[in-house]
């Protein structure tokens, strides 16, 4: 262990090997993944993952900026890896293809709140989401989610109420969601990845096999 060159070479080689093995090779394997095209029951071509609306894409940026991934995950583990499927958080495990449109992907590492990978499919309605974003405890009494009240502002009603505004307790006042709140709600409503893909079949298909 007294040879400087040997030490240097060993240090370089071990790191290069791990970079090649776990960064370069997966990139080569998964880097060319594209959206999966399939035909649904009504003979319409659908892509998975589906394209997001502009508002939902901006909502993804809001989600990243607020750091929601600190408490929420967006990945469904396989049946032998946890209770995700049993809890109804998704119909199949998540695969790489589901995240093609997410930049950066928000897989999350902590489940203090429910998994959101299929939130749109489970609960996705904008009105519901906005109340929940303002104060989650209005929707779920003992929720530990901090919500995002700063994404809303209380205004007096002059003329017509703003479409989509929430009621406040007082008459003549409305809670208007700012653009970021609407975008975030649209993003949450767009979350869903239960389409059939080659890498992971939906359960019903399994039975037919």
């Amino acid at each position: 262990m007294n040879h400087g060159p040997l030490l240097f070479f060993g240090v370089l080689a071990t790191l290069a090997a791990s970079w090649l093995g776990l960064v370069a090779v997966p990139r080569q394997q998964l880097g060319n993944l594209d959206a999966d095209l399939s035909t649904n029951a009504a003979n319409v071509v659908v892509t998975h993952p589906p394209a997001r609306s502009g508002e939902a894409t901006q909502g993804h940026a809001v989600y990243v900026s607020l750091g929601c991934a600190a408490c929420h995950t967006q990945q469904i583990r396989p049946e032998n890896g946890g209770s995700d499927l049993a809890r109804g958080w998704g119909q199949r495990r998540s695969v790489a293809r589901d995240y093609l449109r997410d930049q950066p992907v928000q897989l999350g590492s902590s489940r203090l709140g429910p998994d959101l990978a299929n939130y749109g499919e489970r609960l996705g309605t904008n009105g519901f989401n906005l109340v929940r974003l303002f104060d989650p405890r209005l929707v779920v009494t003992n929720s530990t989610c901090e919500g995002a009240p700063y994404l809303f502002e209380v205004r007096t009603v002059t003329g017509e109420p703003v479409a989509g505004a929430l009621a406040t307790g007082e008459s003549g006042r409305q809670m208007v969601p700012k653009a970021a709140a609407r975008q975030l709600a649209a993003y949450l409503a767009s979350l869903g990845s239960s389409a059939e893909v080659p890498e992971a079949h939906l359960p019903a298909k399994e039975e037919a096999k």
């Binding site: 071990t14 791990s18 776990l22 995240y99």
Partner: peptide, 26 residues
């Protein structure tokens, strides 16, 4: 430490949407 230290990239994503071999190696 040098040999194995860089290969645990996916230990924080076990069960996640990665090919099985990446997770197994990690």
């Amino acid at each position: 430490l040098a040999l194995f230290g860089g290969w645990t990239a996916a230990t924080g994503i076990v069960g996640g949407p990665l090919p099985a071999w990446v997770i197994t190696v990690s």
